[in-house]
């Protein structure tokens, strides 16, 4: 069997050559990163417009970090507002403007953990919580829904995968959810998580595998339940 070792597959860079798409992605990422660095520097120095731009260009992935760490009942929008408030108050304390993204991630994780500690249930509990609220939540997607039209079954499946993703280790869950936001490259995810690009690639790959296994196990349980088999029913 023809088989490449893990070393060979560890990353495009290590294979000694890049595909055209990867090379173009790198060039675009370089330009975007240089611009992002200038914005971050101005924001740290107190430029209000730069601060707004910094927030607008990062709030989407910050929401993904919150998703990865928040308690299920907490509302992403509420937590984002807290992150925004912290950003306005403390961004001037960041010493290295290039470290703004990892700093913002830390702020988001702290906000999510604080929400978990507070234990306060909010209105979103009913909206995103039990299965009985699924149809209402589906109908209530409204302006937030940007993806292609989904059926109720697909919506429910997405919700289930999000719940299963909560069972993944932090190190896999974060890059996987960040990658689900299309406009983030492995390199950008690596900058946010302060990890090498090759590590991000490996974690995303393993995270996808683990999520698939969790989903398969869930499907088997559902099938057993439908057939009236208990946990001992399957050989």
């Amino acid at each position: 069997m023809q088989h490449q070792g893990v070393e060979d597959l560890a990353g495009p860079d290590q294979r000694g050559g890049l595909s055209d798409a990867a090379a173009a992605e790198l060039a675009a990422a370089d330009a975007a990163r240089a611009r992002a660095d200038r914005i971050a520097e101005a924001a740290v120095c107190g430029d209000a417009h730069a601060l707004n731009e910094l927030w607008n260009s990062n709030r989407r992935w910050v929401a993904a970090i919150l998703l990865a760490h928040k308690p299920r009942w907490a509302d992403v929008e509420d937590l984002l507002q807290e992150v925004a408030m912290s950003m306005v108050r403390k961004v001037g304390e960041v010493r290295d403007p290039k470290a703004v993204r990892p700093w913002l991630r830390t702020v988001a994780i702290n906000v999510a953990h604080a929400a978990a500690r507070s234990g306060k249930r909010r209105e979103s509990d009913e909206r995103m919580g039990g299965a009985e609220g699924t149809e209402d939540a589906f109908e209530g997607r409204g302006r937030d829904h940007e993806a292609a039209p989904e059926s109720l079954a697909e919506y429910e499946q997405g919700r289930l995968l999000m719940q299963l993703a909560e069972q993944l280790p932090d190190g896999y869950r974060e890059p996987l959810l960040l990658k689900a936001i299309h406009d983030l490259s492995y390199r950008e995810i690596g900058e946010i998580l302060d990890l090498p690009e090759t590590t991000i690639e490996t974690r995303i790959a393993r995270g996808r595998r683990q999520l698939r296994e969790l989903a398969a196990a869930r499907e088997r349980e559902e099938e057993d339940r439908r057939l009236g088999l208990g946990s001992a029913g399957r050989v």
């Binding site: 107190g46 927030w55 993904a64 929008e77 937030d144 959810l177 996808r208």
Partner: peptide, 29 residues
């Protein structure tokens, strides 16, 4: 894996789209 990715992506994008409505408090400058 492709199916899971498509479904998860739709769910994550739906949830993170809420971020677009969250603005910074105005800064007094």
């Amino acid at each position: 894996a492709q199916r899971d990715h498509a479904v998860l992506t739709a769910a994550v994008r739906r949830e993170t789209a809420k971020a677009e409505a969250v603005r910074l408090p105005r800064v007094a400058t």
